[in-house]
C-alpha cells in the first residue's frame, strides 16, 4: 500500500492517542494536546483529525458503554492500528536518520 503522508497536526494527534494510558476519546485527547503543545485548539479540529486518521486507517475506534455524565451519551474510543504504529515508527526512523546526518557543531551555529 502506498504510504500516505501525515500532516504535522495529524502526527501529533496520532502520537497523543498512542501515548494515552487510559482509553483515548475526544476530550482526553484534546486535553493532552493542549497540555503537550500549549496551543489553543478547538475540539472540532480534534474530532475532524481523528476521523480523518480513522479514514486513512491509522486509527480504529469503537463506541463505549453508556456514561453517567455528558447526558448519558456514549464515548468513542480510539486505538492506534498496526498501520498507524508503523507510520509513526517510520517517521521517527526518518527523523532519527536526519538527526544523525547533521554535522557536529552545525546546529549550535545555526542556533546562535
Amino acid at each position: 500500500m502506498k504510504r500516505t503522508f501525515l500532516g504535522e497536526f495529524e502526527e501529533v494527534v496520532l502520537l497523543v492517542v498512542a501515548a494515552c494510558t487510559e482509553d483515548a476519546y475526544g476530550v482526553i485527547i484534546w486535553e493532552q494536546l493542549q497540555e503537550q503543545t500549549g496551543r489553543s485548539i478547538t475540539i472540532s479540529a480534534v474530532h475532524a483529525t481523528l476521523y480523518r486518521l480513522e479514514e486513512k486507517g491509522y486509527l480504529s475506534s469503537q463506541m463505549g458503554g453508556a456514561t453517567a455524565e455528558r447526558g448519558g451519551r456514549r464515548k468513542r474510543f480510539f486505538t492506534v492500528t498496526a498501520l498507524g504504529s508503523r507510520a509513526l515508527l517510520e517517521i521517527q526512523e526518518m527523523r532519527q536518520r536526519l538527526w544523525q546526518a547533521i554535522p557536529q557543531g552545525k546546529l549550535q551555529l545555526i542556533g546562535q
Partner: peptide
C-alpha cells in the same frame, strides 16, 4: 452517525 459522540464530547468539555 457522529452526533452522539460529538455532542457528548462537547458537553463534557463544557463541563470542564
Amino acid at each position: 452517525h457522529l452526533r452522539e459522540e460529538v455532542l457528548g464530547d462537547i458537553h463534557e468539555r463544557y463541563a470542564l
